[in-house]
Nucleic acid binder design. Structure first.
Lengths: 238, 238
DNA sequence: ACAAAAAGTAGACGAGTGTCCACATTCATG
DNA sequence: CATGAATGTGGACACTCGTCTACTTTTTGT
């Protein structure tokens, strides 16, 4: 009677999707976690109380807090990723075709591109601060399942970003693996920029510039590395 | 025993310093937090039990968990920073004088330098995994005091690193502010590399290379930026 | 050596917790 | 309409928690 029904594929969400209770619990958990503590340190009664439900209602939707956390990541992450990609494609279409030449990525067009991408991320962050803060907190948090889920999400973002960037260029800046590596590092670094951005509203312009400069530096650096050693494997280091 | 006649103006911690109980509590807290949960989510009784003490013993040393956490950061952080700087200076002395030319930072000598620095950090991480994991966890954790303390520590590391790098070069690679900015970003990115390094022992060589390449890319990128726009303020061309 | 301070112990209290059981409500669908 | 699953409520259980007071042991300065 434990998980026979609940565990089965996706019949859960037939009516459970918009059924208020589930969403209320997730919202309450994010709210409490963002202002007070980490997800795992929340109390079951604490959350249900904040959601205006009886303690037992929790069990109707989630097995434990890892379960709730994963659901939250799935929901927010999916929405976020879709929104980001959509906005990015919209930006790309609005300028019709590959605007940025590979060699000229540091010129005005390239800088503008970077500026828009950074703005995209920072805008999302300011629009969903609680979810974002909790997510980043769980990135290095105590639950392995949570860590894995958040990391996978960030990696997906990085993959998207790498793809879109390569598409915008008229010639590939570097090999695909390196591009994804760079995108990953940019995404990770952006978590710090984003947290600063949320915590220090008075320094937002400065942080924005810093983020843009960081990305630009990464690109310029990669092009420099490519120029001086195009063949990585053959670089006999010893 | 202790040769402090008027060692310091503060006599508060004369006897409390090395008293086993305090250390036992810190160790127990780090141990529990690294394997189970975040610092703030630990229970007072849980920690004292793990330390083999009565619950009330906690109050003899710390007011609350923030207090314990700050003490832990002070201790581990101070030790770490001293150790890092010492080892770095020892490395610098062993090669007598400025070995790396600014233009040639990407040559073998420069790469070797980066390799040693990365090794330095990763070695420390593998030697103090629990303290490091907890520290990084609190970097984005729930307690503002903790966050501030860990961030200040990382910033200090970055400052040290920036100084030492500039000292090793025969000519400054960039202005001091940019160098510190880069060092900060490198240190922050290293937190991710370090966590991966701990969690995936079988991929350590790969992660090590990735970290080295990241730093190299940052340097090359900064030199590229400097070369194409020495004056940052006047870069607005629109 | 001795007295005071620091460190640690024992027990108890009320509050809050996770979890279970039995019962009430909603609601789509045969 | 009836039925059964999904969803939510209330009470009760054993347990852990933080904190308090009172007492004992260890360490330390003089």
């Amino acid at each position: 009677m434990k998980d026979n029904i609940d565990d089965s594929p996706e019949r859960v969400s037939v009516m459970g999707r918009g059924s208020g209770g589930r969403q209320k619990l997730i919202d309450a958990a994010l709210e409490l976690a963002s202002t007070t503590r980490s997800l795992a340190s929340l109390g079951l009664r604490e959350v249900t109380r904040c959601a205006g439900l009886a303690p037992n209602a929790f069990y109707r939707h989630f097995r434990d807090f890892d379960d709730l956390g994963l659901a939250a990541v799935d929901m927010m992450g999916g929405e976020l990723r879709r929104g980001l990609r959509e906005r990015r494609l919209r930006l790309a279409r609005s300028r019709q075709g590959p605007v940025v030449s590979t060699k000229g990525i540091v010129n005005d067009a390239g800088r503008q591109n970077i500026r828009e991408t950074v703005g995209l991320v920072l805008d999302f962050v300011t629009e969903h601060p609680t979810a974002y803060v909790v997510g980043i907190r769980e990135l290095n948090g105590s639950s392995p399942k949570m860590r894995a889920a958040v990391r996978k999400l960030l990696d997906d973002f990085a993959r998207d970003m790498a793809e879109d960037i390569q598409q915008m260029l008229d010639a590939p800046m570097t090999d695909e693996a390196s591009m994804q590596e760079i995108a990953r590092q940019v995404i990770y670094q952006m978590t710090f920029f984003s947290m600063d951005y949320l915590e220090q509203p008075q320094r937002r312009d400065e942080i924005r510039e810093r983020a843009e400069r960081f990305i630009l530096r990464m690109f310029v650096g990669e092009m420099g590395l490519q120029a001086m050693a195009p063949k990585k494997k053959a670089a006999a280091r010893k």
